[in-house]
Write a protein that binds this DNA or RNA. Structure first.
Length: 489
RNA sequence: GGUCCUGUGGCCGAGCGGCUAGGCUCAGCUCUGCAAAAGCUGCUACUCCGGUUCGAAUCCGGACGGGACCUCCA
């Protein structure tokens, strides 16, 4: 690789030089959604973050195998024995088959990913599709002595594990602190220890999702699917594991324990955690009631939203903050991002109209280096964007004539936007709703009429035309070369 | 209560030992029939109190504020 990439590794808490296990190839696993309800915007941020990571890795020449799972079974509602499978609960509520619920929300999730131009993973495995593999890994963990069977369920023995390995390494927990904090008063508990977590749960009679296992009918525990599927598709040790910050503990911690317990291998080289989207300083979460769906965001149909925003505005907004920092949502911030985004896309269009000069006052190669430098520094998209705005100023100045650009430099700038704005940031042009041939010729007709009126100094007519167009969200801008129009719907 | 993160100009948001990030907003100017757009100029900040240093927003200690995790959560 020509680029030297640095990644902040959550488990070492340091920025580290990235080097893949197999040269030229990267294995990346990201915890996907639990498909029992609509995704909200906070979820989208995480998937968008790792979409950007994947795009950059591919851009600098890696072949990436990107695995992102669909959790369609197994997450209990609580840490108690009477906890219900979330999906089964929802199914009863809506009178649907569990797999019908799963399908419905999986489809919805895919639609949302498409809207935000978030690429599909290379492999998108489901938990229900890997029950056999999960049972096998649980058996391995048992035979290695790190799990025990209790009343038809199987639990991971955290105490036993921590005698040999470091449980809590990723999240910085100290096992004794954890014990004093999670001590359960429930004496009936099947667990030997409050910290132990389920690998396999016995299914109660009313439980809908159930599979046969060596321990009776049941379903897999909360964390085992990720260990199994990452191992199956990426190997015992792989390059990058991503997910939201809120999964660090216990989910990712348990994943490590399971992998090490089963294979003896530390599974992940680089842990990456995306930070939360907040609203008024608080985490966006279903339970807080401050989450809105992507649909609500686009239509503006939510009490927190003054109006709607396009998907690419939101994508730009997300990328304006670093993935590892919390990002606070507000209408003001969204509107600022929207204006910046429009300014940038306008400049990309403007670049096509810049007349080349013999010589050039600008050297795009330095800018290109700066773009790489920003991304190489732990995917610093806010800095990348600030570099791109440098190019915006250059383009506009060139159009205005205050600086000169050679054909070569124009080409280089075009390529920078092609590479970093479209390929790496994953932006795409949003079609206004009036770009058909008919619309275009009608607009040229109107602009021509208005130009005639202006030539005759009939400003009443020219303003009337402009105002009328403004009412249907078509904006006219007069330039030296004549008027341009754009749809601002 | 425990663990960890964080506090930057009107707003958002980078930087994390010396070199005005950037975006949005606001004001002025240029251009323009008027707008809009664009360009230029201006507004130059780092919660507070100590310390280290030739030099700190940036490192260390403390105070105060905000947040995340410790339970399903991207």
């Amino acid at each position: 690789m020509e680029q030297t990439l640095y990644i902040y590794n959550s488990i070492t808490r340091e920025k580290e030089k990235f080097s893949s296990i197999i040269p030229g190839h990267v294995g990346m696993y990201v915890c996907g959604p639990t498909v029992y309800s609509d995704v909200h915007l906070g979820n989208v941020r995480t998937f968008l973050t790792f979409d950007m990571v994947r795009r950059y890795l591919e851009f600098i020449g890696y072949k990436v195998r990107y695995v992102r799972n669909i959790t369609d079974v197994g997450h209990l509602t609580g840490d108690s024995d009477d906890g219900e499978d979330k999906i089964a609960k929802k199914a009863k509520l809506e009178n649907l088959e569990p797999m019908e619920v799963v399908q419905k929300y999986t489809n919805g999730f895919h639609d949302v990913m498409t809207i935000f131009n978030i690429g599909r993973p290379s492999i998108e495995p489901t938990a229900t599709g890997h029950i056999i593999e999960q049972i096998e890994m649980i058996q391995d963990i048992i035979s290695n002595g790190f799990a025990y069977v209790s009343n038809g369920s199987v639990y991971f023995d955290v105490r036993k594990f921590s005698e040999k390995f470091n449980y809590g390494k990723l999240s910085g927990r100290v096992i004794d602190d954890l014990l004093s904090n999670t001590r359960d008063l429930d004496g009936q508990d099947e667990k030997r220890d409050g910290l132990d977590f389920a690998l396999w749960k016995k299914a109660e009679p009313q439980h809908l999702m159930r599979w046969n296992s060596p321990w009776g009918e049941g379903f897999p525990g909360w964390h085992i699917e990720c260990s199994v599927m990452s191992t199956k598709y990426l190997g015992k040790e792989f390059d990058i594991h991503g997910g939201g910050m809120d999964l660090k503990f216990p989910h990712h911690e348990c994943e490590i324990a399971q992998n090490v317990g089963a294979t003896g291998h530390e599974p992940v080289r680089y842990w990456m955690h995306g930070n939360m989207l907040t609203v008024n300083g608080r985490k966006m979460a279903k339970s807080e009631g401050n989450g809105f769906t992507p649909e609500e965001l686009i239509t503006g149909n939510h009490k927190l939203l003054e109006r709607g925003y396009t998907p690419m505005t939101v994508r730009f907004f997300f990328l304006m903050g670093h993935y590892a920092s919390t990002l606070d949502f507000s209408n003001e911030a969204l509107q600022a991002a929207e204006r910046g985004y429009k300014r940038m896309t306008a400049a990309i269009q403007t670049l096509k109209q810049v007349t080349p000069s013999e010589k050039s006052d600008f050297d795009a190669s330095k800018l290109r280096e700066a773009c790489y430098a920003a991304m190489n520094d732990d995917f610093n998209t806010p800095v990348l964007i600030s570099e791109l705005f440098e190019a915006v100023r250059v383009i506009n100045s060139a159009k205005e004539g205050s600086i000169k650009l050679s054909a070569e430099q124009i080409e280089a700038l075009t390529q920078i936007f092609q590479d970093f704005f479209y390929a790496v940031m994953g932006m795409k042009d949003e079609e206004g709703s009036g770009t058909s041939e008919l619309t275009e010729s009608l607009m040229q007709m109107i602009i021509g009429m208005r130009a005639d009126a202006k030539a005759n100094k009939d400003y009443a007519t020219s303003d009337k035309l402009r105002d009328a167009l403004a009412k249907i969200h078509v904006q006219i801008k007069d330039t030296k070369e004549g008027a341009t129009w754009s749809y601002e719907g």
